[in-house]
């Protein structure tokens, strides 16, 4: 059983700013990190192989420096790493990205059957959450998004059971392998690599695949295969403060109106949860 984790090199968004003049991200001088959701996916994948056997491959499409993030994943216990990097693949939107990644997974599948693909819920820079589902669609895998817990695998039956988050509730779902999961942070933080793990990761030889190795269609890759065009990027206006309850007109009145607001909000949330629950039960 091979598990493939797709990981993305992202700018440390705590440092990224938007240039108000050009409306583009100012990435200069900003350190790159591994998309935090993807680290969680790698950790979960390694745990699965520790319990059920198999191997974890990590794959990223990006510039050569993304090697650093691949090594980080290797240090956490991934068994091999593939860097998909080629000028012909640059400028990809989510459509082209998921096509290219799916091609790479296909190639891995020819060597060792891929039963699970794992992606982060979303990338903290692009934030579309489209890449995972895009890959699943192309591969014809069942997709389970927003997974917050892996309950277990049944190797005999070739199934996986997970908990996935939906608005105000969660579902427990059993699905037939192969599957594509996108994961939530709740799945569990990545471990602190052991020293031998870290050393192995530093020494590991990373495979680099280009468009040729993937035998993908040029029209579907990179800028050519990307119909998305960015109209504008802008920083959302800063949030307005919450309501203010003026105590100068009497403490009692302020507290009462605060409670009123709270109860109204809470009631709305509760009724939504109840209706969702019944929907799930009926389904």
């Amino acid at each position: 059983m091979q598990i493939v984790c797709c990981v993305k090199q992202v700018p440390d968004t705590t440092q990224v700013k938007i240039d108000p003049a050009t409306n583009t991200l100012v990435r200069a001088g900003v350190e790159s990190i591994c998309n935090p959701y993807d680290l969680v996916a790698v950790e979960a994948a390694v745990k699965i192989t520790e319990k059920y056997g198999g191997s974890v491959s990590v794959i990223t499409m990006g510039i050569p420096s993304a090697e650093v993030q691949l090594r980080e994943c290797l240090s956490l216990g991934a068994h091999q790493a593939i860097l998909v990097s080629d000028r012909a693949l640059a400028g990809a939107d989510t459509l082209a990205t998921s096509y290219t990644l799916a091609s790479a997974i296909q190639k891995l599948n020819e060597i060792d059957p891929v039963q699970i693909v794992m992606c982060g819920k979303q990338a903290i820079d692009g934030d579309t959450a489209q890449t995972g589902p895009g890959i699943a669609t192309r591969l014809g895998f069942t997709q389970l998004t927003y997974v917050s817990q892996i309950i277990g695998l049944d190797i005999q039956k070739q199934t996986i059971t997970v908990r996935r988050e939906i608005e105000n509730a969660s579902q427990i779902i059993e699905a037939k392998l192969p599957v594509m999961l996108t994961v939530e942070l709740e799945l569990g933080a990545a471990r602190y690599a052991t020293l031998p793990g870290l050393i192995k990761a530093i020494k590991h030889e990373i495979k680099v695949w280009g468009a040729k190795e993937l035998s993908c269609t040029a029209e579907k890759c990179g800028l050519k295969g990307s119909p998305t065009s960015v109209k504008t990027i802008f920083a959302p206006p800063p949030r307005k403060g919450g309501p203010v309850y003026d105590t100068t007109e009497g403490m009692d009145q302020a507290v009462n109106s605060l409670l009123d607001t709270l109860f109204q909000k809470e009631a709305a949330i509760m009724s939504e949860i109840l209706s969702n629950d019944s929907k799930v039960k009926n389904a």
Binding site: Y192, A193, T194, L195, P196, L198
Partner: peptide, 9 residues
Amino acid sequence: VTNRQDGEV
């Protein structure tokens, strides 16, 4: 001795 697991060299 390092701060990592199995961290002796």
